Every structure is written in C-alpha cells, then in structure tokens.
Simulated assay, not measured.
Amino acid sequence: MRPDLSQVPGVLGEIARARAREVVPYPLPAPPPVPSFREALRGGGLALIAEVKRASPSEGPIRQVDAVEAAKAYAAGGARAISVLTEPHRFGGSLADLVRVREAVALPLLRKDFVVDPFMLEEARAFGASAALLIVALLGEGTGAYLEEARRLGLEALVEVHTERELELALEAGAEVIGINNRDLATLRVDLDTAPRLGRLARKRGFSGVLVAESGYSRKEELKALKGMFDAVLVGTGLMRRADLAAAVRELVG
C-alpha cells in the first residue's frame, strides 16, 4: 500500500523517501476521543488552522517555540483548529508535540507530515489527531485507499492538491476536506493565485465539502480572494514570525 516514491521530484521526494525509511510499526495506545476537524471548519466565516512550525525547507529556522505554548496562544486568539508538524528533519516537529498539544487544548488537531505508510495514520489517531494530511503528489492513485484507511481508523483527512490533475484525483477519491497548496512542494515556489483558481474549479465540479487554502498567507488583505469560496485557511510561517501569537490570530481572521 506504500506509494512508489522513486519518481517524486525535488524536496518533496527527498523528505518523503526519508520518512518512508523511518516507519517501523510498534504498539500504540488506545486512541482518545477527539473533536471533528471538518465540523470545526464549517463554523461560519473563514476559519483559521494555525500551525505550530519551527522550521521549513523554504525558510530554514523560523522560531524555536514550545508547541504547547503556541497552541494555547492560538486557541486564545480564536483559531478553529491547530496543525502540528511531526516531521523532525526539515520542520523540527515530533509526535511528542502532537501528544502534548492534545493534552493541552480542546481544538481539533491536524497531524502535518508526509504520510507514506498506513501506520502513520494509526499513529496520528492514537496520539490524538482529529485529521491527517494526505498529499496527492505523494500518494497519486493510491489516495483513495489511504482515505479509506483513515476513515476506518476514525480519522479525518485533509487531502492536499496543487494541480488540476491532483484535484481530479482528490475528487475521484471522495475527499471531504480538500486543501489547495499555493506552494509547489517540488520547487518550493509560491503562487497565491493557485488556491483561488483551483478552488473555483473544485466548486464548478460540484465539490460541496470543505475547502482549505494553504501556504503563503501572512496578512488579512491576502485572504480577500478566499472569502465566499473557501471555508478555511492554514497559516504557519506568517503566524510564527509574530511575537504575540494570539494577537496575530485575531488580526488575521478577526
């Protein structure tokens, strides 16, 4: 069920192949009850998924921050969900961050990682995530199988796309939450026109689920193009660079 990662280009391929080598199944705890990720984003207006993010391949080190402190500040500022990076090498995250944040806040958590093995979905559910990221650029035609496995585990999924072809695969797989990434994960270039363009296409194709815009947002005026079409926006670096995280959340989405 693992995808063939040999032809995945650029930084995305490097990270995904490294993560695949590191997956070694082990006994997991019983999964705790968790709130719904999808329903939290449907609460009206443009919801914010605030991300705990210490570093990235495009930015390098961003901020050395305690995951719990950041999550609590995000919750206080009005974020509807929290994305917790668990990739350790390029993003400085860990599963321990996910566990600690789950114990500290009541919001839905997204496990943000490069899922390339079904066991990573089991980990996400066992350690308190409401949802996991599924990247179509990695999973390809296997996206539907990973989505089914997530549902079997009681885990929701943010199915991420960057191109029209990836959007078609997400729609064919039956995704209920689709994230449109402005960043090309192979080249790391950002184009803020990507989310509105593919968002319009998704709605035109009859997608009535939750749409999430991702990457490149830091100012409230940049979100104007999303309103009325998108349900949520995911922001990491743009928040992490602000001294007062709670205030940054309030300023971004009101």
Rank of each mutant, 00 (worst) to 15 (best):
R2L: 13
P3T: 07
S6M: 05
Q7M: 12
V8W: 08
P9E: 14
L12G: 11
E14P: 00
A16I: 11
A18P: 00
R19Q: 15
R21S: 14
R21V: 00
E22L: 13
V23C: 04
P25N: 05
P25V: 04
P27C: 10
L28C: 12
P29M: 09
P29D: 10
P31T: 06
P33T: 06
P33V: 08
V34S: 05
P35M: 03
L41C: 00
G43P: 02
G43D: 11
G45K: 12
A50F: 06
V52F: 13
R54H: 09
A55G: 12
S58N: 11
E59R: 15
I62F: 05
R63A: 14
Q64H: 12
V65L: 14
V65D: 06
V68T: 05
A73R: 13
A73L: 01
A73S: 14
A75V: 06
A76C: 03
A76E: 15
G78H: 02
A79Y: 06
I82N: 07
S83R: 02
S83H: 01
V84M: 04
T86D: 08
P88K: 01
F91L: 02
G92L: 12
S94I: 03
L98D: 02
L98F: 12
L98I: 04
V99G: 00
R100G: 05
R100T: 01
A104F: 07
A106V: 11
L107V: 04
P108C: 08
L109F: 11
R111I: 07
V115Q: 09
D117K: 05
D117P: 01
P118H: 04
F119R: 09
L121P: 02
E123Y: 08
A124N: 10
A124L: 10
A126R: 10
A129G: 02
A129N: 00
A131M: 04
A131K: 01
A132D: 08
A132K: 11
A132M: 08
L133R: 03
I135V: 14
V136Y: 00
L138I: 13
L139I: 08
E141Q: 14
G142W: 01
G144S: 15
L147A: 07
E149A: 15
A150T: 13
G154H: 10
G154S: 11
V159I: 09
H162N: 14
T163L: 05
L167Y: 01
A175E: 11
A175L: 08
G179V: 12
G179M: 09
T187G: 00
L188A: 07
R189T: 14
R189P: 00
D191G: 05
A195R: 05
P196I: 04
R197G: 04
G199Y: 10
A202P: 11
R203A: 06
K204G: 09
K204D: 14
K204C: 01
F207Q: 08
A213L: 04
Y217D: 02
S218D: 14
S218Y: 13
L223H: 02
K224R: 15
G228S: 05
M229L: 15
F230V: 05
V233M: 06
V233N: 04
L234K: 09
L234R: 07
T237F: 08
G238R: 13
M240G: 11
R242C: 14
A246W: 06
A248Q: 05
A248E: 06
A248L: 03
A248S: 13
R250V: 00
E251L: 12
G254W: 14
